[in-house]
Design a protein around this nucleic acid. Sequence first.
DNA 1: TTCCCTATTTATAATTC
DNA 2: TGAATTATAAATAGGGA
Lengths: 167, 167
Amino acid sequence: MARNKVNYALIEDASKRKVSYNKRLKGLLKKSDELKTLCDVEVATVIYGPYRNEPYTFPNNDVVRNTFIKFKELPTLERSKNMVTREEFTMQRIKKLEEQLQKVMKENRVNEMTNKMYEVFKRKNVSTDMNPSDLNDLRCVIKKNLKKVHELMIKEDDGEGSTSNAP
Amino acid sequence: MARNKVNYALIEDASKRKVSYNKRLKGLLKKSDELKTLCDVEVATVIYGPYRNEPYTFPNNDVVRNTFIKFKELPTLERSKNMVTREEFTMQRIKKLEEQLQKVMKENRVNEMTNKMYEVFKRKNVSTDMNPSDLNDLRCVIKKNLKKVHELMIKEDDGEGSTSNAP
DNA sequence: TTCCCTATTTATAATTC
DNA sequence: TGAATTATAAATAGGGA
């Protein structure tokens, strides 16, 4: 997250990976601590890194052990419900991204369309024929005016230079 | 970390705390995931939040259990990461979506429909090229931008100021 | 409430020392 | 190497709909 956007994949360069690992480990522990402190959450984490046999733990070995024991004793039913937590999270993220994508594409489309429509209105004087209620159902309007617009445009094409004809 | 510097203490306001909790939980899971993926680290987390009886787990229930067993029993037995493949597949999809999103947002490129519309208005291909869904989309587009179009048109009527950016 | 949007603060990749 | 610095990317607190 800096200088360059991070690529979501294993960092190939081993030394870079190690540097990144150290920074991110530290960052993750800090974030865990903040979540715990600011929001009164019980967090237990075990991290097996590639540079050490012993795992890192958060907040410490004893708490992790206790929390994990509690976790282990979850009734089977609840556990199975819990099984999908991660997947759900992931799926939600995907869903959100897809929605964003749709939205943005739509926005772009809107912008482009607005410009194009404006161009058409401005240059071809379609506006004269359009009132708000017509605009409310542009589909009809377009159908109604398309031929006319087309004709106007054909004419216009001959003298490509005339820009606007005020009403 | 925004608007105001975070105070390292329990957030008193319960609703603010909950909002913060949700954001930070999400953030922590993401960071965990990044550490795991970018640096090839085994992370296992159990989170008992105040708004739910069952804990959140990262990356999932099974891995947490395995990691816990390893943690508890010390020996360095190699646990195969059977879910990695699927997760990576999922993450690739996410990555792809993110890339698409970036691309679309930044380049603001003209999409197919816009091109088609442009053709329709600018050139000779009239209604034959337009399918009903395009027209329907157009209707929405205009509805959404009616005000803007009007403003532009009114402004244009007074004086001048072409804003078109035709392809 | 929940989502969405910025203004800021943080985290951190690349770079320098 | 590695610690410190810097320039960006990312996370997120507060506020609005």
